[in-house]
Simulated assay, not measured.
Amino acid sequence: MIPFRIFALLILAIGLACGPAHADRRVALVIGNSAYKSAPKLGNPVNDATLVGGMFKKAGFDSVDVRLDLSASEMRRMLREFAGRTRDADMAVIYYAGHGIELEGTNYLIPIDATLETDGDVLDETIPVERALFAVEPAKQLRLIILDACRDNPFSKTMKRTLASRAIGRGLAKVEPTSPNTMIAFAAKAGSTASDGDSRNSPFAVALVEHLPKPGLDLRKA
């Protein structure tokens, strides 16, 4: 789960002064990948993205782009377009739900058309988390990446290793952003996987929407 310090900052960042007087420009990109072509379909990410995207809209974000079941080329295009919108934004958020993989300490987001037959395919068929960090970097005040991508990953069990010693982790690796005012929130701690739960939404997505403040709530007094 998210460390308390990060979760508290996340609440303040999204909910602070959501009322009519709020002047900062806030933009969000929400991606949910469920319909994987070379792995069993995930039940929740599309629902989670829809839920979280609705929360951002209710919070009064100036731009909320919700995209579902994206291929690698579509994910790259959406990140490129979002980077353009962050140039005049004070706060930028990317939420991703779907499969992710960690290869030798680097985290990657997995599009629905990835096959990942070998570990080398990770470099060609997935999107490094650093690409998402690059997309939010122009925001002037705060940059957030929320990764609901720590599910048990079937690709890591079946892909062939070009080197026997090459490390493919369980869950995602811990990342410490080097840019100021930048945070990454994970659905599970480093090296662990998160549960999808038994309902239409993951426990992580439900917790985010439940605990983030309602529109108009000023958390400066919270």
Rank of each mutant, 00 (worst) to 15 (best):
residue 38 S to G: 07
residue 58 K to T: 14
residue 31 I to D: 02
residue 64 V to Q: 09
residue 81 E to S: 12
residue 33 N to R: 03
residue 87 R to P: 15
residue 91 M to S: 08
residue 67 R to K: 12
residue 91 M to W: 01
residue 66 V to S: 00
residue 61 F to A: 07
residue 39 A to N: 11
residue 51 L to G: 14
residue 93 V to S: 10
residue 23 A to N: 14
residue 101 I to A: 01
residue 62 D to L: 15
residue 72 A to H: 10
residue 61 F to I: 07
residue 60 G to Y: 12
residue 63 S to R: 12
residue 85 R to F: 13
residue 71 S to C: 07
residue 27 V to N: 10
residue 23 A to E: 09
residue 27 V to I: 12
residue 61 F to T: 07
residue 48 D to Y: 01
residue 72 A to S: 04
residue 56 F to R: 11
residue 27 V to R: 03
residue 55 M to N: 11
residue 87 R to Q: 15
residue 22 H to D: 15
residue 43 G to F: 01
residue 78 M to P: 01
residue 58 K to I: 11
residue 25 R to S: 14
residue 40 P to N: 10
residue 33 N to W: 00
residue 22 H to C: 14
residue 64 V to S: 04
residue 57 K to E: 13
residue 54 G to K: 15
residue 24 D to Q: 08
residue 87 R to M: 13
residue 29 L to W: 00
residue 63 S to K: 15
residue 77 R to I: 08
residue 59 A to F: 02
residue 29 L to A: 08
residue 95 Y to D: 06
residue 64 V to I: 06
residue 71 S to E: 07
residue 69 D to A: 03
residue 75 M to D: 00
residue 60 G to W: 07
residue 98 G to L: 01
residue 59 A to K: 05
residue 53 G to H: 01
residue 95 Y to Q: 02
residue 42 L to H: 09
residue 68 L to D: 05
residue 42 L to V: 08
residue 93 V to A: 01
residue 98 G to A: 04
residue 28 A to W: 01
residue 26 R to C: 04
residue 94 I to S: 06
residue 68 L to H: 05
residue 60 G to N: 07
residue 47 N to K: 07
residue 28 A to P: 09
residue 50 T to Q: 05
residue 96 Y to D: 07
residue 90 D to M: 13
residue 47 N to P: 04
residue 26 R to K: 14
residue 100 G to R: 03
residue 27 V to S: 05
residue 69 D to I: 00
residue 32 G to N: 00
residue 65 D to S: 12
residue 98 G to V: 00
residue 76 R to H: 10
residue 64 V to P: 00
residue 75 M to A: 05
residue 82 F to T: 01
residue 63 S to A: 09
residue 24 D to N: 07
residue 28 A to V: 05
residue 66 V to N: 08
residue 81 E to V: 14
residue 36 Y to A: 04
residue 53 G to V: 06
residue 44 N to G: 14
residue 100 G to A: 05
residue 79 L to Y: 00
residue 95 Y to A: 03
residue 60 G to D: 10
residue 101 I to D: 02
residue 99 H to V: 02
residue 49 A to Q: 03
residue 26 R to F: 02
residue 23 A to Y: 06
residue 95 Y to E: 02
residue 81 E to H: 10
residue 89 A to T: 08
residue 75 M to T: 01
residue 34 S to I: 08
residue 80 R to S: 13
residue 93 V to L: 08
residue 87 R to V: 15
residue 87 R to K: 13
residue 88 D to M: 15
residue 32 G to S: 01
residue 70 L to N: 01
residue 92 A to P: 04
